Simulated assay, not measured.
Amino acid sequence: MTIHLGRKAACRLSASRLHIKRRIGLPPQSRGSTCGATCPDVFELRDGRFVVIGSERTAEIRKDYPGMRTLATSEIVVVVDRETLACAKAFIPDI
């Protein structure tokens, strides 16, 4: 499966190199989503990195926390609900 991200070439990597290995945690429908199409989610990539799908809140966070470290042009702030991350936690190895 290939994921296509719409934000500045996904940290300067081509989208074709971002191959999803597996979902981390439960699918949105198992967490109470009625449509499953617009819910936060966590995936592991084949190279060991993770993809987090959530609500983009970069401008809001920068406004509320002006002392926040500087973000690279390829970075954004993504907000994910606690349940999504807690469900994923059990599936992420310590190392």
Rank of each mutant, 00 (worst) to 15 (best):
M1Y: 05
T2H: 13
T2E: 12
I3R: 01
H4P: 00
H4Y: 10
G6Q: 05
G6F: 07
R7G: 00
A9P: 00
C11E: 03
R12I: 00
R12H: 06
L13S: 07
S14D: 12
S14F: 03
A15S: 13
A15D: 15
L18H: 04
K21A: 14
K21G: 01
R22I: 01
R23F: 02
R23W: 02
R23E: 11
R23M: 13
I24W: 05
I24G: 04
G25C: 13
G25Q: 08
L26F: 05
P28E: 12
Q29P: 00
Q29G: 09
S30Y: 01
R31G: 06
R31I: 03
G32E: 11
G32K: 02
G32M: 10
S33F: 09
T34V: 12
C35H: 15
G36M: 05
G36I: 06
G36K: 07
A37M: 11
T38N: 14
C39Q: 11
P40H: 05
V42H: 03
V42D: 09
F43G: 02
L45H: 10
L45R: 11
L45V: 11
R46G: 05
D47M: 01
G48L: 04
R49Q: 10
F50Y: 15
F50I: 13
V51Y: 08
I53E: 13
G54P: 10
G54A: 11
G54R: 07
E56I: 06
E56V: 04
E56Y: 06
R57L: 05
R57W: 00
T58M: 03
T58D: 03
T58V: 01
A59H: 11
A59V: 06
A59Q: 14
A59R: 14
A59P: 00
I61D: 00
R62D: 04
R62I: 10
K63C: 04
K63T: 12
K63G: 02
P66S: 05
T70Y: 04
T70N: 10
L71K: 02
A72S: 09
A72Q: 07
E75N: 02
E75C: 01
I76D: 03
V77H: 06
V78M: 06
V78H: 03
V78I: 15
V79L: 15
V79S: 14
V79W: 09
V80A: 15
E83L: 14
E83M: 05
T84N: 12
L85R: 01
C87S: 15
C87A: 15
I92C: 13
I92E: 09
P93F: 01
I95V: 07
I95P: 00
